[in-house]
Design a protein around this nucleic acid. Structure first.
Length: 458
DNA sequence: GTCGGAGTTACTAAT
DNA sequence: ATTAGTCCACTCCGAC
């Protein structure tokens, strides 16, 4: 059915679709060489178990984009990988494998989409959210009562398949929306209000970062282990290619109030500043011996950043003191094993680290010299994302998953675990967390089975 | 010291 | 209900 009169928005959409189709056609020409290699499609269908709007999987043959890095860095011609895989896991002739397309540039959202239902209202709402003038809560006397936290069975959804590596609330009060990235390169968006999930696959390897900028929600950065940084642009309906590294990108961050630059954890210990206005890498420092797991800026002093690394340290740095390419750590916080996270508290006055040496470190005082060590079992093993203690809405509490399918609440004041959130509804271990800054008490835990559990206050 | 292999772990899908 | 498959983390340990 054709609408009699098209709105501006619909016209814009049609233009987008036409332009993106042309783009895809051009890309297909470039990918001739790689089309010789067949790959098995990884299973990516998200079963929205608890989401009311259950949808059938897409019927069209999806286009699978493979990791280019693995081929290039190993110097293996594309054909070989396919043969290699076949020899390891022989497949029956009846199982037809789709051709792969290597995307060298922007990827249209239509192509990346894996949920069957229309995403036009979702895309439209993203543009409507472009500006949020309200102020995040927290620190405003709106204190959290731990006892009031509960898990409603309606606040559970499977948004992606497999292991969630990254989860973020949208920084807005206008809608309750969560983005989650998994190890296959999917990004799932869950609109809690409409109870709808939109699934895309802009990447081909574990998602290492999702960055939703408060000043412009319609543009969302995503980073991936395959070295690619993309920018989802709802207006153009594409996942644009921003930057591509030869090395793995392990983390993604942005200082508060910054609009042009993003920071990437690159390779074994590198921190890269990407200037998106200039379209270039404007700085690069070798900060650690092994991979940087998190990058977190201080909200009070945006030039101060904390990094956590698998070299068993977390460090704070002053990015203003960037003579040449060497940077000296303001402070180094040592652990006995890999440090999985280092986050500044909401006020910026404290730092919390989580390490595989089974401790959580809390550092406070003017120079973070006041140290507290809290024992916490952090051996998640190979199949789960590692635990990362995450600050709540003030400097009082931290939230971290445990291996008994609970959420441990750490009091930074009492320096111990004061409570564990448990629910019969939580049937898997929550590994990664995010808080809704605009809603005190709204906490999301993400599992290695693709589910999100949203705890709320009252 | 560096490289590679083994062992660890939880969850899903298939039987 | 039980089991095979997962397999981009990390650590330990042995060989060189």
């Amino acid at each position: 059915m054709k609408p009699q009169k098209l709105t501006d928005y619909e016209l814009q959409r049609l233009q987008n679709i036409r332009r993106n189709d042309e783009m895809m056609a051009a890309l297909k020409l470039h990918s001739k060489a790689t089309q010789l290699s067949n790959f098995k499609r990884q299973r990516v269908e998200a079963k929205s178990t608890r989401v009311k709007s259950e949808k059938k999987p897409k019927t069209e043959t999806p286009i699978v984009i493979r990791v280019r890095r693995s081929l290039r860095t190993r110097g293996i011609p594309p054909d070989c990988e396919g043969l290699d895989r076949d020899s390891v896991a022989p497949t029956t002739p009846s199982k037809e494998k789709p051709l792969s397309v290597v995307s060298l540039g922007p990827l249209s959202m239509a192509t990346a989409r894996e949920s069957a239902h229309s995403d036009s209202s979702f895309i439209e709402s993203l543009m409507g959210m472009a500006q949020d003038v309200s102020v995040p809560k927290g620190n405003a006397g709106d204190s959290l009562e731990l006892e009031s936290l509960s898990l409603d069975s309606d606040n559970i959804a499977r948004v992606v398949s497999g292991r969630i590596t990254n989860v973020r609330f949208f920084p807005t009060s206008s809608v309750k929306m969560i983005a989650a990235g998994n190890k296959f390169g999917n990004i799932g968006f869950w609109n809690m209000g409409e109870n709808e999930v939109h699934l895309y696959r802009p990447h081909n390897a574990p998602i290492s970062g999702i960055l939703i900028q408060p000043h412009c929600i319609s543009k969302i950065y995503t980073s991936c282990y395959d070295g690619v940084l993309r920018l989802m642009d709802a207006e153009k309906e594409i996942f644009d290619l921003v930057f591509e590294s030869d090395e793995t990108i392990y983390a993604l961050s942005q200082p508060p109030n910054e609009t042009n630059c993003v920071y990437l954890a690159e390779g074994s210990g590198g921190l890269t500043m990407w200037d998106n206005r200039a379209g270039k890498r404007s700085s690069h420092w070798d900060l650690h011996d092994w991979r940087i797991n998190t990058i977190d800026f201080n909200c009070q002093n945006p030039h101060i950043v904390a990094t956590s690394s698998s070299d068993a340290t977390a460090c704070t740095w002053d990015l203003r003191c960037t003579n040449r390419n060497d940077l000296k750590a303001l402070r180094t916080f040592t652990h006995k094993r890999s440090v999985q996270s280092a986050y500044f508290s909401p006020s910026g006055g404290s730092l919390a680290t989580t390490s595989l040496d089974n401790t959580i470190g809390i550092y406070s005082g003017v120079n973070l010299e006041d140290t507290a060590v809290i024992s916490h079992f952090n051996q998640t093993g190979r199949w789960l994302s590692t635990f990362r203690a995450k600050w709540g809405w003030d400097d009082k509490y931290l939230f971290i998953g445990n291996m008994n399918r609970g959420v441990d609440v750490v009091s930074a004041v009492q320096r111990k675990i004061v409570m564990t959130l448990e629910s019969p509804h939580m049937s898997a271990i929550p590994c990664r967390f995010d808080i809704n800054s605009y809603e005190v008490g709204m906490l999301v835990g993400a599992t290695s089975g693709g589910q999100l559990y949203v705890w709320t206050s009252r």
